[in-house]
């Protein structure tokens, strides 16, 4: 306690000195910043190269795709490829289906995760630690072993051919989100609960009126990650849906890989368009992610 005050007063003192220096340093730092930017841009260029290649391919003529030596850019960009890709398969319809599926899945996570995490973070009961470990251990299970038993179960329920087999599991909480939310809730002082309890609030009122409003950063993480993961989900919709008109974009894209030929330029065009919604969501949500993800480092 004592050392801390000492340190902070000393900090304050030198901070002022420091600030005075920063102004001068910033001007001198300019060349250094340019160096950093140049490096970052170079790195970004490397990272974007595969995407650039996809974009370039999506605008090529089929013959140019296979040219030797390779051509970096199409001689005459074929914007019509995009139109062709969209006329070949109902891509808008597929994207709409994906959106529907993803939104419902995300709602499922948003409903279940806070409740479950609340149980782990705030209550004492026998077997809690074992259950928490078990919950984390489910991350290790390879998804492939689940499909046959799940198909059997959903067939018994008569739900094959609906979105339920894909969405329903999302209503029971993803272990990653539960872990994150539990950590975050533990970092919220218990005094808040106690105060509310003294005012006569029940446990679940406390969750929804006191704790959850403080967990917004984690909710943002859930929205973004749940969106990402489900947007790319391929096997479950393939196995559980029946109607061509109900397929999400992940399955729809697979139709471009025909039995005897792949129209690469159209395939790449469709893929690029399918990425856009995810990209836009991420761009606008990323600022909110950091706070929620920071709970990972807290002591469990």
């Amino acid at each position: 306690m004592k050392t801390e005050t000492l340190a902070s007063s000393r900090t304050q003192e030198i901070m002022d000195l420091h600030k005075a220096r920063v102004g001068r340093r910033n001007r001198r730092a300019l060349p250094k910043n340019i160096l950093i930017y140049a490096f970052m841009t170079g790195l970004a260029f490397l990272f974007m190269l595969p995407i650039f290649w996809m974009a370039s391919t999506s605008l090529k003529l089929p013959r140019e795709v296979f040219a030797f030596p390779m051509e970096w850019l199409p001689s005459n960009p074929q914007w019509g490829n995009y139109e062709e890709a969209f006329s070949k398969f109902p891509l808008w319809r597929f994207m709409w289906n994906s959106t529907y599926m993803v939104v419902l899945s995300t709602i499922g996570q948003l409903i279940s995760v806070p409740l479950i995490a609340y149980g782990f973070a705030r209550f004492e009961f026998p077997g809690k630690n074992i259950l928490f470990m078990l919950m984390l251990a489910t991350l290790m299970v390879p998804t492939h072993i689940k499909f046959i038993p799940l198909y059997w179960m959903f067939q018994q329920l008569g739900l094959i051919g609906t979105y339920w087999p894909i969405i329903l599991p999302e209503f029971f909480g993803h272990p990653f989100f539960i872990f994150l939310m539990t950590q975050y809730m533990r970092s919220i002082p218990k005094e808040l609960d106690e105060a509310a309890r003294l005012d006569g609030a029940g446990s679940f009122t406390i969750l929804y009126l006191v704790i959850l409003p403080l967990c917004k950063p984690v909710l943002a993480v859930i929205v973004v990650f749940s969106f990402l993961w489900n947007w790319n989900e391929f096997m479950a919709p393939l196995i559980f849906l029946d109607d061509f008109e109900e397929y999400p974009i992940s399955v729809g894209l697979a139709f471009f890989q025909g039995r005897y030929s792949v129209e690469w330029h159209l395939f790449m065009a469709a893929t690029l368009v399918s990425i856009l919604p995810v990209l836009v969501l991420y761009f606008f949500a990323q600022r909110h992610l950091i706070g929620g993800l920071s709970a990972i480092g807290l002591k469990g």
Binding site: G161, L238, I239, D242, D243, V251, A254, Q257, G258, R259
Partner: peptide
């Protein structure tokens, strides 16, 4: 139910 070529076998086996 029209499946992509790559998916029929997996689905049928499931």
């Amino acid at each position: 139910t029209l499946l992509p070529e790559s998916g029929l076998e997996d689905r049928m086996n499931t």
